[in-house]
Every structure is written in C-alpha cells, then in structure tokens.
Design a protein around this nucleic acid. Structure first.
Length: 355
DNA sequence: AACGACATCAACCGCAGGCCG
DNA sequence: TCGGCCTGCGGTTGATGTCGT
C-alpha cells in the first residue's frame, strides 16, 4: 500500500506566498500554536499543504528569526560547525592511521557519532545560530561559504587545503600549519600525523602538564590569542605564515595516535573515562583567563559538562558550571551555544553518556 | 534600453525515523 | 507487529534579482 499524499495537491496553491496567506498562517499559529500541520491549512483557511505551511512558518514567518546578512562571526561559526558536524568526519577517519584505533574512538566519543556522520547537520548548525534556520544556513553555505572556502584553497567538503600531495604523502596529508604544530608538540609520536578540525590523540596517562596528547582542540581564536602568546607559538605561526594567509581561520588540528595500552573491548566509555580521565582531556593550548589562569587543561568529563561528577578530577581548579571557568568549551556546552540538553530527544545516547 | 549569464534564496520534493492506534 | 501519520531532514528547483556587455 502506498503512502497517502500529504495533501490534496489538486486544490493547493504552490509557489510564493502572498501577504494574505502569511497573515492567515500567522494568525492561526498565534491562536492555536504550532503543530498539527496536516490539519492546519484547512483550519486556517489556506489552500496550501501542511508541509508548505510548516516550511513557511519555520523558515520565514517565525517571529524569532533574524533577517539580514550573516555576520563574519556567523560565517566562521558555520564553517567550524560544518567541519565538526559535517559528513566529512568519517571520510577524514579513513585518511588516518587509526584503523586499530577506531574501536577506542567509538567507545570514548561514540555518542558523538551521530554528529560525526552528518546526521541533521544543518539543523544542528542552525541550533547554534539563534534566529537562523537550517534552510537559510544550507543556502548560505552553498552560495557563499562554499565559494569562500574554495577561494581560500580549502575543500568545503573535507575542510582540507586543496594542495598537491607531494609535500604531504609522508605526513598523511598534514598541512604546513599542522606540521608546525606537530613539531611543537612535546610528546607527539611519529604516527600522529593527521590534520583536520579537532585534535584527538591517545597516550598513556601522563600528567597534564607534560602532555599534549589525547583529546586536543585548537580553536580558531588561537590566531587572535597568538598576538599575546609566547614567542614559541609565535614562531610556529610565522613558520606557517604562508598557510595562514591562505587559511587564517581554520588552524584546527587533529592528532591521533594509537593507544599505548590495549583497552579491553568490553570497556565502556564511562569506565575508560574513569580510568584515563586525566589522559583524555581537552587541551587548551593557550593560557586563558588572564595572567593567573595558568594552563587551562580540563578533563574529558568537564568538557562534557559532567564536571560535577565523580569522574571529574581537574587539577586546574576549573569548574565549568561555576561561572568562573576558563576551560575550553567543546561544542559550546558551557556557554550554551550548543545545548546538549536540547539533543536529548534525538540523541538519547548523549544523555546516557553524560548521566 | 535590452539581453543573457549568473547569483540568490524561498519553496518544493522525496525520503526516513519516530510515534501511535 | 504492522501500517499509517506526522515531522523534519537534505537535495533540488525555479522565480527573481543583479551584473556585465
């Protein structure tokens, strides 16, 4: 049995909406609220299908929508989120030397897999841009940002520099920027040679102060912070200035290395975090929060917003919920830009992972 | 002014997952 | 368990605007 049509197509208008139709739709939703889209057109006296009404409301008529051009900040946020949530994620994995690491990956960050697989990415991105719709962002991506990235020499699908491979094949497509960063890495292993947006690596538990391994994230804002950064990092920036000119805002590096200790296949992400929570850390490569803040290294649990759990043992005294935290806010969990609680409905595994 | 090429974006389409009877 | 409905997604289309000749 076939699916019944969503509406009587023969008796519905199509194409651009008129002012009168808009007014009718707005008035009806103000009176009765959203939902019941299938029955809404008839109730509102509209010759439209429910689907069309829903789209018109969500993408155009909603009062909380922000109209107008995207700001530069929104541009960069979209790029970052697309690199993070876009469907390039697993294609990136395929380019790394982590075949034997995938299991661990799945265990530790498996609850991110829905993001990583590109599921609902436009709506997720839209969720971090108040007043913007997924459709708007999708259009904007296709018309503006895609070209912008191409002009920078970046493949919009993979967020990698579009370069020949002659300089990269020994380094698994590592970019000059990432190479410099890798050289700067105190404990970087030879195997750790890949580059993209987020930094992941693993190693045996070592004091945070001596390792740059593990889960590491370098923010775009680092470029700005570098102005007041150590000579060391400035040197790195200088050595990669050519690349920086081409890609000034996507200095996001991903580092992954094989685990030094075999993990039990039965080990849950939770127990893994418990055992290695000092090893799995989001590393803030730059000091944050002023002169007394020290190196802002936070544990994985804190990064997930479960810093108040027993799994948290930040030695930096950071507390993401205390309002004084200066740790890195992975995915915006702290500042609410991406509220993981809003994901509970669609990503119950997230909730499970953090409770 | 007229025309075509190109860019933009609102709207449409088909599909899939969740929910419910 | 199954089938239909509802909702929301990504991809695509087409009307309209803009720019260059």
């Amino acid at each position: 049995m076939g699916r019944s049509p969503c509406c009587e197509k023969a008796h519905t208008n199509k194409g651009a909406w008129t002012k009168e139709e808009d007014d009718r739709l707005i008035a009806h939703i103000k009176a009765h609220g959203e939902g019941c889209w299938r029955s809404l057109p008839k109730a509102a006296g509209l010759l439209r299908c429910g689907k069309s009404c829903r789209l018109r409301w969500i993408n155009y008529l909603r009062p909380d929508l922000k109209r107008g051009n995207f700001t530069e900040e929104e541009d960069e946020l979209i790029i970052k989120l697309h690199s993070l949530l876009g469907n390039n994620f697993y294609s990136w994995i395929n380019h790394t030397h982590i075949a034997n690491f995938v299991f661990l990956w799945e265990k530790v960050v498996g609850f991110f897999s829905d993001f990583a697989l590109g599921i609902n990415r436009w709506s997720l991105i839209a969720g971090r841009l108040p007043g913007r719709t997924d459709n708007e962002i999708k259009n904007y991506w296709n018309t503006h940002i895609r070209r912008k990235l191409l002009n920078r020499g970046i493949d919009p699908a993979t967020h990698r520099l579009i370069t020949d491979n002659t300089n990269n094949h020994h380094n698994n497509n590592i970019t000059p920027t990432a190479s410099a960063a890798a050289n700067h890495n105190v404990n970087s292993s030879p195997e750790v040679t890949t580059t993209t947006t987020i930094s992941f690596a693993s190693a045996a538990p070592t004091p945070p102060s001596t390792t740059h391994h593990l889960i590491k994230h370098e923010q775009v804002e680092d470029d700005v912070k570098l102005r007041s950064d150590s000579p060391d990092r400035r040197k790195i920036k200088n050595t990669s200035s050519e690349n920086q000119e081409r890609c000034p805002d996507l200095n996001l590096e991903l580092r992954i290395g094989p685990p030094r200790h075999h993990q039990s296949n039965a080990m849950s992400s939770s127990s893994y975090i418990q055992q290695h929570h000092q090893s799995i850390e989001f590393y803030q490569p730059l000091k944050t929060g002023g002169r007394n803040s020290g190196g802002a290294t936070i544990c994985f649990a804190c990064s997930l917003g479960i810093q108040n759990s027993k799994e948290c043992s930040c030695t930096t005294g950071l507390n993401l919920t205390g309002g004084k935290s200066t740790g890195y806010d992975f995915l915006g969990l702290k500042n609410g830009a991406l509220d993981y609680r809003s994901l509970e409905m669609k990503y119950p595994q997230v909730k499970e992972a953090v409770t």
